[in-house]
């Protein structure tokens, strides 16, 4: 996790993001939306995702909205996008269209 000068935080996720990794990912993202009003999660190097991960993105985005935090997902790969679309998680609700 990188904290920049303007208090914005950036988290780079790499490799597989599936049910097997989901508990660790959850802790990282949960803590992230608590420390800064401006959070970026970079998904450029994410290789494999499943529905549990997309759900986590949705939950994080909802939490961010509730707490008036700006949460941006950057570097959204086709893998992530197609999974989100396939399971009909609107791009808008995950913020996957932000970048």
């Amino acid at each position: 996790m990188n904290i920049s000068e303007n208090n914005s935080v950036r988290l780079d996720l790499k490799g597989d993001c599936t049910i097997y990794e989901i508990s660790d990912l959850y802790i990282k993202i949960r803590d992230l939306v608590k420390v800064s009003p401006h959070v970026t999660v970079d998904l450029a190097e994410v290789e494999k995702v499943d529905a549990s991960f997309i759900q986590l993105l949705v939950a994080a985005q909802l939490e961010a909205k509730r707490n008036k935090i700006k949460l941006v997902f950057s570097g959204v790969s086709d893998t992530v996008r197609s999974m989100a679309e396939s399971i009909c998680c609107q791009i808008a609700s995950t913020g996957l269209d932000a970048d």
Binding site: S23, L25, A51, S52, Q55, V58, A59, L62, I87, S93
Partner: peptide, 17 residues
């Protein structure tokens, strides 16, 4: 999404979809 819990009470292995 209404039933999606807050991050504090969220269980990442649960399905809320």
């Amino acid at each position: 999404n209404e039933s999606m819990p807050s991050m504090d009470s969220y269980d990442p292995e649960n399905c809320y979809l």
